[in-house]
Every structure is written in structure tokens, then in C-alpha cells.
Design a protein around this nucleic acid. Structure first.
Length: 288
DNA sequence: ACTCGTGTTAGCTG
DNA sequence: TCAGCTAACACGAG
């Protein structure tokens, strides 16, 4: 299930194998994945064009398209979001298949054709599909990319500090807010908070400058290692996200709860959160 | 049978 | 209007 590193893999796949191929037909029959949905709308908008570039910001991808002929202006952008279980599958003219997105190894059963939610049929006989079991992926023309914050892999330290520390929300919930920082999902958030030794429940206004800076460095290194190792699920602490799991660093028991509406795991020793004494009620402070 | 989930978002509240 | 929270979406896996 894709976070930033998996989406980048999918984007690169499209950039390498999907560009410059004439779109001969479009299957946009899925009434939930293709939005806004009027059957045939995407077919009408895309047939006769080619994809000319593949971009990504956070977990959102979009492809530029060519004019239907050389005299026409460029076509609409094709927005692609993989959701929780989406994967890009590209079939070459000779039938060779390449995939990127949701790691195939984790659900390696044969692909059912019914799970291809959107397909570009190329004139060369190949195709590009959004394969998505849960149908939470999205295909959309001209997606509003500016609604997203800066890409998590490109945000600068000063910008990160400003975006992450304003307000009172739990730091993990803020990291998951795509309008602030784009690309961090549930696993990357747990991994980077663990790496920075910060409790996921810490209200962001309680983060000191040194905490925010440590979290920023954790973001950089977690993205880098996830990209190198093949996805967000390869993080050191991810294997410990299970009942009975222990911290890979100190051996303490891992705790589980819900933060920002998502399943969350943290080290009971290194990521314990306690409010500064000045913010506790008098009776609570006296118990410390 | 029943619960959970690596994501997003409409709709509600203060 | 904004920040923050919750339920809903869909469906396969355990």
C-alpha cells in the first residue's frame, strides 16, 4: 500500500514505459474510481493523445498529455492516485508486464481483470492500467495539486518547522496531513517518529526547535532508506508493529493505539510523552 | 462472523 | 474561516 516511495516507483514506471504511446481507447467504466464519473468522459478526453510527462507530488501523480494532432494545444492532465491498494501495471507491445506501486509480493495472488479499475489501451497493442483491489484509488482530469503541501522529499528545514509546529494537533496527525506535507503515510510517520524518539501524541506546539529539527532529519533518512530498500514497509520499526513487538533499538515493549485516526505503534520507553510540568493541572504535577 | 487497515475526504463542531 | 475530529468509502485478509 503505497506511500511516497512506492508512488515514486510507479511514476518512474510511467515515465520510462508509458510516454509517447498513442492512446487508442480508454476503459473508464469503473463508476467509483474514475471521477467525476460520466462513463466515456475520460475516453473522450484522452483518446488520440499520448502521455508526454509523468509528475508526482507526495502521493499524487499526474501526466501531461499531447494534443490530438500537431496543430492542437496540449490535452488535460491525467491525475492518478493509488489510494490504499493501487498499482500501475504497464504491458508492452510484446506482452511484457511491468508493475509499480503497491508491492506485488504482499498480495501475490493472480491478478483478477476485475481489479483493473482504469485502462489506457495503446495503439501499439500494449496498455497501462490502474490495478486496485479496494477501489480507493482515483483517476481524475486536471487534479488540484496545489491543495497539497510541499513534497516530503523536497521540503526545506525552515519550511518544515513552520508547517509542522503550528497549532495544537498531535504531531503524527500533522505529519499525515497532505495539505501541510505531501507524501507521508501511516508507516512512514511511525517510522520517522520512532527514529526521532518523539511520541506520536505530542501536541505540535510542545515540540522544541531541536525536536522539529530531529524529526526533519528523520524524515530525510527514512525517505532515503525506504527508497533504497523498496518501500515504506521496509522500515526498521515496521516489523515491530504487532502484538508482542519490541523496540529494535532498546528492546522495550511497543505500545499500540490510535493517533490521528490511524493505527499507531511506538516504543514505550523512548517515545513516552509527558507534558511539561507547567502545563499540568496542579494535582497531576504534584504526582510527578 | 467479525474486525482491521500502508489513504482520502465530506461534514460536523467550536 | 479555520483547526481539528469522526465517519464513511470498499473490499480483501486474518
Amino acid at each position: 500500500m503505497p506511500e511516497l516511495p512506492e508512488v515514486e516507483t510507479a511514476r518512474r514506471l510511467i515515465a520510462d514505459l508509458g510516454l509517447g504511446r498513442r492512446i487508442a481507447d480508454v476503459d473508464d467504466a469503473d463508476t467509483f474510481v474514475c471521477r467525476p464519473h460520466s462513463p466515456g468522459k475520460l475516453r473522450e478526453a484522452l483518446t488520440g493523445r499520448t502521455l508526454t510527462a509523468a509528475h508526482r507530488r507526495g502521493k499524487a501523480m499526474w501526466c501531461e498529455t499531447s494534443g490530438v494532432d500537431s496543430s492542437a494545444g496540449p490535452g488535460p492532465d491525467l491525475g492518478i492516485h493509488l489510494g490504499m491498494s493501487g498499482r500501475i501495471v504497464i504491458v508492452a507491445a510484446d506482452g511484457w508486464v511491468a508493475e509499480g506501486g503497491d508491492p506485488p509480493g504482499r498480495d501475490a495472488q493472480p491478478r483478477k481483470a476485475a481489479w483493473d479499475r482504469f485502462t489506457l489501451e495503446f495503439a501499439d497493442g500494449g496498455r497501462l492500467s490502474l490495478f486496485d483491489k479496494r477501489r480507493l484509488g482515483r483517476i481524475q482530469l486536471n487534479p488540484d495539486i496545489d491543495a497539497l503541501g510541499p513534497d516530503a522529499g523536497e521540503v526545506a528545514l525552515a519550511e518544515f518547522r513552520a508547517l509542522v509546529t503550528k497549532g495544537t494537533i498531535a504531531v503524527k496527525a500533522r505529519l499525515l496531513d497532505q495539505s501541510k506535507i505531501a507524501g507521508v503515510g501511516n508507516l512512514l510517520a511511525d517510522q520517522m517518529l520512532w527514529k526521532a524518539k518523539i511520541s506520536p501524541a505530542t501536541p505540535v506546539n510542545h515540540l522544541r526547535r531541536q525536536d522539529a529539527d530531529r524529526l526533519y532529519r528523520a524524515l530525510r533518512s527514512v525517505l532515503e532508506s525506504a527508497a533504497a530498500r523498496g518501500g515504506a514497509h521496509t522500515g526498521d520499526v515496521i516489523a515491530a508493529r504487532r502484538p508482542g513487538g519490541t523496540c529494535p533499538r532498546c528492546g522495550a515493549e511497543m505500545r499500540h493505539g490510535t493517533v490521528g485516526g490511524r493505527s499507531t505503534w511506538w516504543c514505550s520507553r523512548e517515545q513516552a510523552w509527558s507534558a511539561p510540568a507547567s502545563e499540568l493541572l496542579p494535582e497531576a504535577a504534584s504526582q510527578r
